[in-house]
């Protein structure tokens, strides 16, 4: 575990939506450079937690700190947080190219009333190359496969001096090879860019195989620890309210091989 100050920290976090408690007593912190996987059953509040970290929802109680500040006070510092949402239900004929979409990620860095300069286009090119899409710059986003589109959204999330990357079920709808490629890409980018990654997913095995830590929530924190501990825990089964026969020895081994 890194001894540096936590990059994300939640203490006694609670969120009520329309007077209905969605999250309560959420406690965790992660060190810079960590890959944290957030798991939990449907309706557990995983996306709500991510939206709190993004500053899109204000906590009802408790405190959250992201990059040392409250998410709502990040202001233009928000560009240091990259966000890849669930696969977008966007219009495939929306007339934007790959580089247009990635340039959107520079909008907050640039500020209002300013136009992209040569340096911004260079950063866009760098991000596109980093996600392995060099040569795709002028392709229309709707003409790409699901896996390629997710890489474009990843490039958009990375092109603004990003330190923290949040992914919300980014692999949903992708076939297994595309999922595996995306996780492998995340691992490489994480090393190269010194990123902290927080990913929400329903795929316990794949996430367990790639994350440094898993946190299982179902309204509240059930367990937070290394993937092997979490996947083996009775708290995981309590959170999902079922047994997991599919958590095979092979999957546990894969999780155990993580440093």
């Amino acid at each position: 575990m890194n001894s540096a100050a936590p990059i994300v920290e939640a203490r006694g976090l609670a969120v009520d939506i329309d007077a209905h408690p969605v999250l309560w007593d959420i406690n965790f912190s992660i060190a810079p450079g960590t890959f944290l996987g957030i798991i939990g059953p449907n309706g557990a509040g995983k996306t709500t937690l991510l939206r709190v970290l993004l500053g899109l929802i204000a906590p009802s109680r408790g405190t959250v700190s992201v990059l040392g500040r409250s998410p709502s006070q990040l202001g233009r510092g928000a560009h240091q947080i990259g966000y890849v949402p669930q696969r977008l239900d966007f219009d495939p004929r929306f007339p934007v190219s790959v580089q247009d979409v990635v340039m959107m990620g520079r909008a907050c860095c640039l500020g209002l009333f300013r136009f992209p300069q040569r340096d911004d286009w260079r950063k866009v090119q760098d991000s596109i190359r980093q996600v392995g899409l060099a040569g795709y710059e002028s392709r229309r986003i709707g003409d790409l496969s699901g896996g390629e589109q997710q890489r474009v959204f990843l490039a958009r999330a990375l092109c603004s001096q990003t330190r923290l990357l949040l992914l919300d079920e980014a692999t949903t709808g992708l076939d297994l090879p595309a999922q595996h490629e995306l996780y492998a890409l995340l691992q490489r980018l994480r090393r190269e860019m010194d990123l902290t990654v927080i990913a929400v997913s329903h795929d316990l095995l794949e996430l367990g195989a790639h994350a440094d830590e898993l946190i299982c929530i179902n309204g509240t924190t059930h367990i937070h620890g290394n993937p092997r501990t979490v996947l083996d825990s009775h708290q995981l089964r309590e959170a999902y309210r079922c047994e997991f026969d599919f958590l095979s020895d092979e999957a546990r081994e894969s999780a155990a091989q993580r440093p």
């Binding site: 993004l54 500053g55 947080i81 949402p85 934007v96 959107m104 909008a107 209002l112």
Partner: peptide, 16 residues
């Protein structure tokens, strides 16, 4: 343009 394409990510990126 960002707002028209993806309002939620635009908001998450700190755009007003």
């Amino acid at each position: 343009l960002f707002l028209a394409f993806d309002e939620e990510v635009a908001r998450a990126n700190g755009l007003p």
